[in-house]
Nucleic acid binder design. Structure first.
Lengths: 207, 207
DNA sequence: TGCTAGTGGGTAGTGGCACTATCCGCAATA
DNA sequence: TATTGCGGATAGTGCCACTACCCACTAGCA
């Protein structure tokens, strides 16, 4: 399989494939001559993965690079991989709102009350704190309890998801399923929420 | 309130405020002279909203513009506003995968089986179909039922959300709450899922 | 053997997005 | 009166994700 086959099978233009190779998002092919190399199914699969994470998941190439590093370590314990994937998925900017540390403490207390056992400093908790700060800035008189219902459902969803990957025996598949699942089902959940909103909105207010 | 006050109160640099004014994301102030104008609380609030949708919600300025158009029509029936908000929130690219129409049909059938009553051609359903296509391209042998559990929870969440805005009497607040809630609680739900994943992963595999 | 399409590798250029800088004549304020 | 700030306009910046072009070289066919 040469670069043109890779391009045709995946629908990704050749210059872009070359770009991914340069950027290290795609490992180099097997060299057969000074200016020739062959690629295999794994390259094609990786190319699909990169494109899917970028287009469906909306990740930056930098985030994708970090996620792929997690994939390169299938020997890691699964919860390490999950942590790396979660960190990789975070967008990098940090809003430096002065009231964020206080909100973060509130969220930490609330998390503890929920009985969730998390590594201290988990990045996703910052996102929740940031959302709380944003709500207040927009005039909502909200405490962390406003997220209770969401947390309830998130817990049920996550429990099933973790149970699912725990069933998988092959560690490499488990790692990949974790990364793909985190991104793709995250997107699916968001879309399904919108669909459900539309359904209930129609039921209540619709024609 | 002059432009410098607006900037100081919001933390947004003056050139950026000017930029938002030019782009129509912020309505012009009350002119008091050829080169003077005053702004009020509503401008500050709008500025906060634009920044929050951009930074926390990750929306493009183009999406924000569309969302703001929905806000400009508080007389609309709420399910219209919701539809506009949902359309505005979609990222604009359309993956032209050849197997997407078929997947879309599968999703439509599945939606009907669920008993969800939706406008035909709802954009969010395309996103679900796209996710299904992506999963298959990555080797998952999946049908729409793979989303069953997510749909279950999304339904419960959305029902509570719609019930909440239905309680609000002031139509203007209801519209704004709808837009803010759709974006911010969407983000919160995603983060909470990651937190819950970490909790359950630790419980099962952790130290 | 000769010919041409294709290849890997490198450098440079492109387009879009979200700002950011600078300049101008005028207004406000000390 | 002098300085600071304002609004409006035009132009420039930095980043990101490609995309174009060029080169010497190779594969595959005539």
């Amino acid at each position: 399989m040469r670069i043109s086959d890779l391009s045709r099978e995946s629908g990704v233009p050749i210059p872009t494939v070359k770009f991914y190779l340069r950027e290290g998002l795609l490992p180099p092919g097997q060299r057969t001559a000074r200016n020739q190399a062959t690629y295999d199914e794994r390259h094609l699969r990786r190319l699909h993965l990169v494109r899917t994470l970028a287009e469906v998941g909306g990740l930056s190439l930098e985030s994708i690079r970090r996620v792929l590093n997690a994939l390169a370590r299938p020997d890691w314990p699964l919860h390490e991989v999950l942590a790396v994937a979660h960190t990789a998925l975070r967008r990098d900017e940090t809003s430096s709102d002065p009231s964020l540390p206080a909100a973060r403490l509130e969220i930490d207390t609330w998390i503890a009350r929920r009985g969730w056992n998390l590594a201290p400093g988990t990045p996703a908790a910052d996102d929740v704190a940031e959302t709380l700060v944003a709500l207040r800035r927009l005039g909502w008189d909200a405490g962390p309890e406003i997220f209770d219902r969401y947390a309830e459902h998130a817990d049920a969803i996550a429990e099933a998801e973790i149970a699912y990957v725990a069933e998988t025996n092959d560690p490499e598949s488990a790692v990949e399923a974790t990364v793909i699942g985190t991104v793709l089902f995250g997107r699916a959940l968001a879309s399904l929420r919108l669909l459900a909103q539309e359904h209930h909105s129609r039921k209540r207010f619709g024609p």
